[in-house]
Design a protein around this nucleic acid. Structure first.
Lengths: 180, 180
DNA sequence: GGTGCCATGTAACGAGTTACATGATTGG
DNA sequence: CCAATCATGTAACTCGTTACATGGCACC
């Protein structure tokens, strides 16, 4: 199952605790792969049983202890295998598209409202992406390292979000032109 | 749950049987909302119990009988309400992004192979979209009707698929330039 | 006579979500 | 003292997938 591999990929980048992972997967990384903390803890136990990751107890002062997980050589190997296996395209289920598809059922102002809402959310997301870009990827060294790979995925996030905003705009313009 | 509304939207467009819906949701419509026939039949029973749709037995010759479902006024109303309710952006879980994110773990040729695979699948999808465009949306009347709404969603499909292809290409070029 | 399409379902399982639960510490 | 953050978990439920099941007709 793919969540395992997303977790392995995150832990390969940097070992961390379930809590840390949950935060990442709800923040920026969550824009292309999300999971709740319940799912993550459950999955981490499985991966530990499989011997793909192992935990180190880290006691902190002023904070609860935590278990920091690292990927084992076996886990890393399984991740490599998975990366090398072709997969089909994922299905994206998008409520806004269903709304537009059946948009003739509601007043155009209502549909425009939904599209604006969608556009604003993408706008907010875009700003998060651009902040990340400015903070972490502005001054990448010319010789390729593993940060560059993360940057390639961020760039997809940026261009897709921009494309969303453009499509929302175009659709709103059409609706206002023909249905007002 | 959203599958209900996707089904209502499809049935509002044109009443049909579970089998018909399953075909639609595995073909072109399935590129932005998918469901298997098992899910669809289960959901149709629920919607019938709720009184949001009702069935008419249609006996055919040379073929098994079928149940054609239509949306009731109540169902239509619920769909309108749902359309008018704001929703959060859906999460897209994309394996290829996880692969690129952890792409430093495998030889660049392997990653390029995965990207080419992804690009080809999007290319095939684009051709399906463009066929649909040519067949059904080439000669839309100037006055807006409900076909136009479907066309707006198709246009999103086209531009996103093109953006995918572009991103794959860009990423492949980068990988080949710096890691060969 | 076999393959494939039409048509509808059940059963079991795995993935994902929501609610509930605990307990320490830091900062206002 | 109250809220927020750190940190980890269980339980119940819904959604989605895979496998299994049936049966007739059409076409080669």
């Amino acid at each position: 199952m793919s969540l395992s591999y997303a977790l392995l990929a995150a832990l390969c980048d940097r070992p961390c605790s379930g809590y840390d992972l949950a935060k990442q997967f709800q923040g920026s990384v969550g824009y292309f792969w999300s999971a709740t903390h319940q799912q993550i803890y459950r999955e981490l136990h499985k991966l530990e049983d499989l011997g793909w990751i192992n935990a180190t107890e880290v006691s902190q002062d002023g904070r609860p202890d935590k278990k920091v997980f690292s990927v084992t050589p076996l886990g890393c190997d399984r991740l490599r295998q998975w990366i090398s296996t072709p997969h089909d395209l994922p299905v994206t289920k998008d409520e806004i598209l269903v709304k537009v598809f059946a948009g003739y059922l509601v007043p155009s102002s209502v549909l425009v409202g939904q599209l604006r809402h969608c556009q604003q959310q993408h706008q907010a997301r875009l700003e998060v992406y651009q902040d990340i870009e400015a903070q972490f990827f502005q001054h990448l060294p010319p010789e390729p390292n593993h940060r560059h790979f993360a940057y390639l995925t961020l760039k997809r996030g940026i261009s897709f979000t921009q494309e969303w905003i453009r499509w929302c705009e175009e659709t709103i313009v059409w609706l206002e032109k023909y249905l007002s």
